[in-house]
Amino acid sequence: MHFPAAFSVDVEQDCPPYLDTCRGMETGMPRLLDLLGELELKATFFTTGEMARRFPRVIERLVAEGHELGCHGDQHRDFTTLDQAAAEAELGAALATLRAFGPVESFRAPYLRFPVTFLPLLVCHGLRLDSSLARYKSGANHRAGPVPAGLVRVPASMTSSVLRLPRWIRAPWLARLRPPVVLFVHPWEAVDFRRSSLRWDCRFRTGVPALACWRSALLDLRAAGADFAPLRQFLSFRG
């Protein structure tokens, strides 16, 4: 039985707010793009304006290879700490940068936190899909509230670190996800931070082990019937 699925990437500095380096952009992104090319899988890359300005050739490559370019804010600021004017400025700056590379219709807030009072801003900026919700988070007040006309909200299915767990733990977890299945990772996870001072859930099985886990997970889901496509496939989704 086939079911819809999407693989997405939050393109940002290394493990914010703990680091301010960009090894993920320099090393992790090429590795991740190579993996997706090998699997012939098209993903959605939620990208900050800052990373697009600093690494334009990386963004040009992902667009040229047929991936969807999405918005992840401009400076990876937590929208729950911003007022309306600051949120407007953050979106405007990001989209002014990103749309120089191609069309942008999808959005995901940093830390998957976005106040419902800001949802109309997305529509005003021509964004049609929001993936700032998380099924694995309970009781979050950013879930409540009406969705403006013209906007679809598609939640992430699970946190990114689950995909780096050993297969015997990961596979049953993935099998329990209800469609549409929306996975996400970060480029910095493809860099070896295992000996760093990052907290354990951020650094375990990073680097080559992470890439191997992602490859295995995607192949397992495909074998189970997942039809992977960029998140824009869900523009008609109303779940």
Rank of each mutant, 00 (worst) to 15 (best):
V154F: 00
V63L: 09
D83R: 12
V152G: 02
T81A: 10
V58S: 13
D83F: 11
G70D: 04
D78C: 03
D83P: 12
A109P: 11
L119T: 00
V154N: 00
D74P: 06
K137Y: 15
V58I: 14
V104W: 00
H142E: 08
A64C: 05
A85Q: 15
G73W: 02
H72K: 07
D130E: 15
S138Y: 15
P120G: 02
E60Y: 07
R99H: 04
D83A: 06
T81Y: 09
P56T: 10
T117C: 01
H67W: 08
L129R: 03
A86M: 08
E65Y: 07
E105T: 12
A144V: 15
A94D: 03
A87W: 06
H67E: 11
H142G: 04
G92N: 11
R128K: 14
A144W: 14
E105K: 09
G70R: 03
G73Y: 03
P103G: 09
V123Y: 01
G70V: 04
A140E: 15
L112H: 14
R113M: 08
L151P: 10
K137E: 15
A85R: 13
R113G: 01
P155E: 05
I59Q: 01
D74A: 06
E90N: 01
L82F: 05
R153D: 03
L112M: 15
E60P: 01
L112V: 11
R108L: 07
L69N: 05
N141L: 02
R99K: 02
V58F: 12
A87S: 10
G145M: 09
P110D: 08
R135V: 04
E105C: 01
E105A: 09
E60W: 05
S132K: 09
A86G: 13
S131Y: 07
L151T: 14
F107W: 08
A100D: 13
V152E: 01
P146T: 10
F114E: 06
L98D: 06
P103R: 15
L91G: 03
E65W: 06
